[in-house]
Design a protein around this nucleic acid. Structure first.
Lengths: 277, 277
DNA sequence: TGAATAGTGTCTGTGAGACAATATTAT
DNA sequence: ATAATATTGTCTCACAGACACTATTCA
């Protein structure tokens, strides 16, 4: 079967890439942000909303449906490079935090052909975006109701609503690995409901034991704002003193204050960068 | 540029997969086990050793070097299916716990062509293996010295030694994400030193907050054995009472005892399966 | 002045770290 | 008897949950 070669160079010179069927590979990005939603009352803090970035497909398959930003990885770029290129091209976003999330590879996940999707979790501070989004891209607010067996998600960008339900099944002898299955899907292309759930779960876990959240904060922030971001991502309210103890080691107080609300002003903090080079 | 199609069916009928260069995709498995090493003394417990499964390459590239078991993913199977097939074919192992680890995709990681490696973390109970390994596969004991910036690893199967050094650099605003770089590599094919480090780190983290360790234990085990497995994977010693509190909720006492050591016999425990269907 | 958020103090219970003490076997 | 592991007890300290209290601003 295998021909015999006398050296690695000779083998490589004769290597025929086309001998096996090859799949395509895309890089898809689950980009999240938490930003102000606007105030009800001059005195109240503006509420924070959790949102994900979608783009409208202008080609088949799933033409005119919304999907996560993504695209085919070129032969001479990494999937992370592709993710950055795609975000720049499709949405006009640059310098985004990215971390690899999961590789989705069900055999029939794309009707065109066999496609591996290397997905990325991305985080941005939406309030600090100076670039304006391209018109085919839009932020959708996330509402997620979770029970023991499933996630009921509604995405809303003000004009359109997308709803889907994803079931979860715990795998044997793991305490954190679920199999996700799309139970209902009204409006989101491909298996992207699974990607969004995987991204939300990853973020929810990592906000507790890493400094990942500061990728969605501006340079200066109040502890109240930071707490709101935690609460939105964790989906539950936190008690002030407990929260302050948790993040005490991660932030540094500045001499700046934030005034202007109808209440006591608060001190602005910055991220305490722990990288020593 | 893009032709216009009137329907998704028409688009799909005309879709030309070969329009873009496609990479190859492999599935590579980091399979770990912790097993007895033999006794120094009739009274002492046998020491546990941490080991990884390697196979000897019989083809170019890296002919006659050791590497992790792995192979190309077929067009109609998932990467996990491929991992199971490869383990059966190359090593004669079946029914192994697998969890997706990371997708490695440096542009030049394979001299043949562009190759994405979807890697899997695998765990087995080596003591309970009834199948005999194929002769091209071998378990290598792992010795890992870790400092702030690097891992110095020695793999030893009794006949051969493999050594490599992998550097780690913490990424900005994460507390757990490192960039791994191979600094020295004497004997392991491809970028597999990185895969092994990624696998060891994943296991070290997950042993603390999941039940993943029970995938490397037999049906019945003593708490002493279980503690040894923790210690080998975490690379540090644990205090008995603390350890027992940690795993108290995960195991169930049986009425079996393990006797035969030159010391007090110990109760055998089983995993307390938390899956309710 | 009052509504609202900012920020601090403190009590309590849980749980991990540390060390000590006891129990039981095979040789 | 002794070496070795098995198993439990308990003291202390740190810290999270819970709640109460004080501080400060602007309409």
């Amino acid at each position: 079967m295998e021909k015999e070669y006398s050296s690695e160079e000779e083998f490589l010179k004769n290597y025929d890439v086309t001998r096996f069927d090859r799949p395509s590979v895309t890089s898809d990005i689950c980009l999240f942000s938490v930003a102000d939603e606007g105030k009800d009352n001059y005195r109240k803090l503006s509420k924070k909303c959790y949102s994900v970035l979608l783009v409208k497909r202008n080609n088949y398959p799933y033409k005119d449906k919304w999907c996560l930003p993504g695209g085919f990885v070129k032969i001479d770029e990494t999937s992370e490079d592709a993710a950055r290129r795609v975000l720049a091209d499709e949405t006009n976003l640059h310098n985004v935090f990215l971390e690899q999330l999961y590789t989705f590879d069900s055999v029939d996940r794309d009707p065109r052909c066999r496609v591996f999707a290397v997905s990325y979790l991305g985080l941005v501070d939406k309030n600090k975006l100076d670039d304006s989004l391209f018109p085919n891209a839009s932020w959708f607010n996330i509402t997620c109701l979770e029970d023991k067996k499933s996630y009921h998600v509604t995405l809303d960008n003000g004009n359109e609503q997308i709803k889907f339900v994803v079931g979860k099944t715990l795998k044997e002898k793991t305490t954190d690995r679920y199999r996700f299955d799309i139970l209902e899907n009204d409006g989101l292309a491909f298996d992207h409901p699974k990607l969004i759930i995987a991204g939300m779960e990853r973020l929810k876990n990592k906000i507790e034991y890493t400094d990942i959240v500061f990728n969605m904060m501006g340079d200066y922030f109040t502890l109240g704002e930071l707490q709101q971001v935690y609460e939105v991502i964790l989906g539950k309210e936190l008690l002030d003193p407990a929260f302050r103890r948790i993040i005490a080691g991660k932030v540094v107080k500045t001499d700046k204050m934030q005034t202007g609300g109808g209440h006591r002003p608060s001190v602005l903090f910055t991220y305490k960068n722990k990288i020593e080079s």
